[in-house]
């Protein structure tokens, strides 16, 4: 089943001349993990916000085309309605804390209270989300006392507890240290294994190559490619558009070592290891 359908989406922020998104079309199946890549200002975040309805409902601006999330059209729904279908986690963990709650547990409850989820169900969902993200032990802590990685996992838990069909992570690890990054990625992988549809915007292409089923490559608001990580990252025009292929791909490319399929280069450590072993 298709969870996200984007058809010929065009969007321009108010007061600007250039299209932030220019004729973007793609579809995401249930349970897929999609990596969204592209250089800065290529429209990744705008696309993410278009899926949860912040574009156009929060920003306004000129909008064309269609975004359908789990059967509802974003343009004709409110952000609150869409929040039951699609959740988004932003870059900065600090600004995602509501600031009106005194414990992690209450913080995660915020969205559920707003949606009017009954109390007994609320607690069940919160326990589940906190356990899944591995922060159940901190449930009585003050949100502002957590480390960056814990805070970001709390932000993800807050969205997960709302049980959306799709979760979008907009560079969730850009402000975290390596340990925090690893914690968040493991959590994302666990979500994906549970069957959640995940869209992940990420600059660390090694991570994308490792976790994503498919890669959506954007540049200047246009879709450059939407394919498997190995196909996208084996392309020769990556650098031209401001992307550096995963380090494993670069090495194998330099050594002219292709994967066994004979078309693409390895994109992960394991893939590169296999190819290099055979080459030896």
């Amino acid at each position: 089943m298709k969870k996200v359908m984007v058809e010929h989406l065009k969007y321009r922020y108010p007061g600007t001349e250039k299209l932030a998104l220019d004729d973007v079309s793609f579809e995401v199946e249930e349970g897929e993990l999609i990596g969204i890549v592209g250089r800065n200002l290529s429209g990744k975040s705008t696309l993410a916000q278009a899926i949860v309805g912040l574009v156009p409902h929060f920003y306004r601006g000129a909008y064309g085309g269609k975004v359908i999330v789990d059967g509802i059209e974003v343009l004709h729904s409110t952000v609150s309605d869409i929040s039951r279908k699609a959740g988004i986690v932003f870059q900065n963990p600090f600004t995602q804390v509501t600031g009106s709650k005194l414990t992690v547990y209450e913080e995660v409850a915020f969205g559920l209270e707003n949606l009017g989820v009954p109390r007994s169900e609320m607690m069940e969902r919160i326990d589940e989300a906190l356990t899944l993200l591995g922060i159940y032990d901190f449930r009585h802590a003050n949100p502002f006392d957590l480390s960056g990685g814990q805070m970001q996992r709390m932000a993800i838990a807050s969205i997960i507890a709302m049980r959306p069909e799709v979760i979008i992570l907009d560079e969730p690890t850009s402000q975290l240290d390596p340990q925090g990054t690893e914690e968040v990625f493991l959590a994302v992988q666990r979500l994906s294994r549970e069957g959640m549809t995940v869209l992940l915007i990420e600059h660390k292409l090694e991570k994308v190559a490792r976790y994503a089923d498919k890669v959506l490559w954007l540049d200047e608001g246009k879709v450059m490619a939407y394919d498997s990580p190995s196909k996208v990252f084996s392309r020769d025009d990556l650098e031209e558009h401001g992307l550096a292929a995963p380090i494993y791909t670069q090495i194998c490319k330099a050594l002219k070592l292709k994967s066994p399929d004979g078309e693409t280069y390895p994109v992960t450590l394991e893939g590169a290891y296999e190819v290099l072993k055979r080459w030896n």
Binding site: V52, L54, S80, R84, G87, T95, N114, G116
Partner: peptide, 9 residues
């Protein structure tokens, strides 16, 4: 962040 957590629901 508040908006996507149903603040205006």
């Amino acid at each position: 962040a508040l908006e996507v957590r149903g603040f205006n629901a």
